[in-house]
Computed example of a mutant assay.
Amino acid sequence: MSEDDPKTLVSTDWLAQHLNDPDLRILDASWYLPDMGRDARAEYDAAHIPGARFFDIDDISDQRSDLPHMAPPPEKFVSRLRAMGVGDGHQVVVYDGAGLFSAARVWWLFRLMGKTDVAVLDGGFAKWQAEDRPVEDLPPMVRDRHMTVQRQANLVKDVTQVAASTKLGDATIIDARGAPRFRGEEDEPRPGLRAGHIPTSVNVPYKSVLNDDGTMKSPDALTKVFEDAGVDLSKPAITTCGSGVTAAILSLALERTGHRRHALYDGSWAEWGMFNDLNVETGE
């Protein structure tokens, strides 16, 4: 797989070359945990890649759920994206302000809706700015664009399906949280959640698939990261994390290795850690 793949990951060089393509749509999908002390919308308003629209992960979600930013119903996804001028026939590039943190979640959401012409910007806005590439503070000119979606149910798992996999062993459950949280040695950032991890799951902290500059490791290096962590890449995979955001980084990494049978547990630890009748493991 080449470095630039418009269905998974593109470089800042690629985006700079295609910036004026009429059918390119750029989305700023920045999102931060409260302890990061950053305001994604304010940062977008101050400076963004020319033409970028702001994709609010918390708003474009299933508001009927008590869980954070669960995947939205297809009709809500369509209406929000149409209003942003994003639709059929567009090549979408998603980035975030942390390098590669929340953008993969939106890549996965597009995939869930059956849209495959979507890539994450490798290294994100930080790399774009470090290279002194153009930015603007103007809202983009938006024209409504028709969008059709077809939800791909195989790309998402609910708590019942994940619980079944822990017993059947039919998929490897891969947890993207940091090792101290995985082992239950660190309190969860969301109050009321137990500490630990889903039984049978393995830990691949999302930072382990990234380089120091926030870009994603090469496909060969990614394969080694997964295999060293005990992931059997011949089996289906289920990615999970705290609330379904960084799990998508592992989903993107799996896709980059050529692994095609992966799904994301949307409720993640925000759901599993809440229910006392679900088993929890601690330690390695």
Rank of each mutant, 00 (worst) to 15 (best):
M1N: 04
S2Q: 09
E3Y: 12
D4N: 15
P6Q: 07
W14A: 10
L19A: 11
L24K: 03
R25A: 08
I26F: 02
Y32K: 00
G37E: 01
R38G: 08
E43R: 06
P50A: 00
P50K: 01
F55N: 02
D56M: 01
I60S: 00
S65A: 07
S65D: 15
S79Y: 05
A83R: 15
A83S: 11
A83H: 12
M84F: 09
G85H: 00
V86H: 01
G87N: 04
D88W: 05
V93M: 04
D96V: 06
G97P: 05
S102C: 14
R111S: 11
M113F: 05
D122T: 03
A126R: 13
A130I: 12
A130S: 12
A130Q: 10
V135F: 06
E136M: 01
V142L: 14
D144M: 15
T148H: 07
V149R: 08
R151P: 06
Q152V: 13
N154V: 13
V156K: 12
D158H: 00
D158C: 01
T160C: 04
I174P: 10
R177I: 14
G178D: 14
D187E: 12
R190G: 03
R190H: 06
R194V: 11
R194A: 14
H197E: 07
P199Q: 03
S201K: 08
V202N: 03
K207A: 13
S208Y: 13
L210Y: 06
N211L: 03
N211D: 09
D212V: 08
G214Q: 07
V231W: 03
D232F: 00
A237D: 02
C241V: 12
A247K: 09
A248Y: 03
I249M: 13
I249H: 08
I249A: 07
L250Q: 10
A253G: 07
A253R: 05
T257W: 04
T257S: 03
R261T: 13
G267L: 10
F275Y: 14
L278D: 00
E281Y: 02
